[in-house]
């Protein structure tokens, strides 16, 4: 696979591993993502804490086109304990203005105040190809901030597309305060990327 195909495939994808893909009942979340390949604006609404529906508008910088995904996320399982939370989600998205562009998969995470581990396995079907995107992420909070403080996470993400040989592993920094979250990552394909999330 050449770099053109890789770039094209990556440009089709929604974000690899989102924090909190479902909000509280009646809550909404707005996400902005930008890297060398695409800009994305994703809004989702959660009628209950068990699922969210949303729309993602994508500006594909490489293909120079714009399209949208209709997205649905469902909480399959959640385990709350005194010091941790574990989640398992089903995610799917369909692009109505692109022929047979569909993705579906499983997203899971486990989190304490200090540690985070998550994964996302997703199958993407387009008119031209079908492949699997795997993403795994671990994180450490270097300090435990109180409610209302600035919180920071140091993370490592590794990702593989089924049509490629190796894994792409790269660092991610995440910060949040109040209802705002920002995340910065760097990988060899897309270089710097930025992710802004606001929950309201």
């Amino acid at each position: 696979m050449g770099i053109r195909v890789v770039i094209f495939a990556v440009s089709l994808l929604p974000l690899g591993l989102e924090s909190r893909p479902i909000s509280y009942s009646g809550g909404s979340t707005l996400m902005l993502f930008s890297d060398d390949i695409k800009n994305s604006l994703y809004y989702h609404y959660s009628p209950t804490h068990q699922y969210s529906v949303g729309i993602e508008a994508v500006e594909d910088k490489y293909q120079r086109e714009k399209y949208a995904y209709l997205r649905f996320t469902y909480l399959l399982n959640r385990k709350n304990s005194q010091h941790s939370q574990r989640n398992l989600y089903f995610q799917t998205g369909l692009s109505p203005n692109r022929d047979a562009n569909l993705f579906y998969g499983i997203h899971g995470d486990w989190e304490t105040r200090r540690w985070f581990a998550g994964f996302n396995v997703k199958k993407i079907e387009t008119k031209a190809s079908m492949y699997v995107d795997q993403c795994y992420q671990i994180g450490l909070a270097p300090y435990l901030g109180e409610y209302g403080a600035i919180h920071s996470w140091l993370m490592v993400k590794t990702r593989k597309f089924s049509y490629e040989e190796g894994w792409s592993t790269y660092p991610v920094l995440k910060f949040f305060k109040g209802d705002t979250l920002v995340e910065f990552g760097y990988d060899k394909h897309n270089h710097w990327n930025a992710h802004l999330m606001y929950r309201f």
Partner: peptide, 16 residues
């Protein structure tokens, strides 16, 4: 409360 492990996710409790 069980499962309240991060500030960002606890915001919804305050809002509710």
């Amino acid at each position: 409360v069980q499962g309240m492990v991060c500030d960002f996710c606890a915001r919804g409790i305050e809002k509710m």
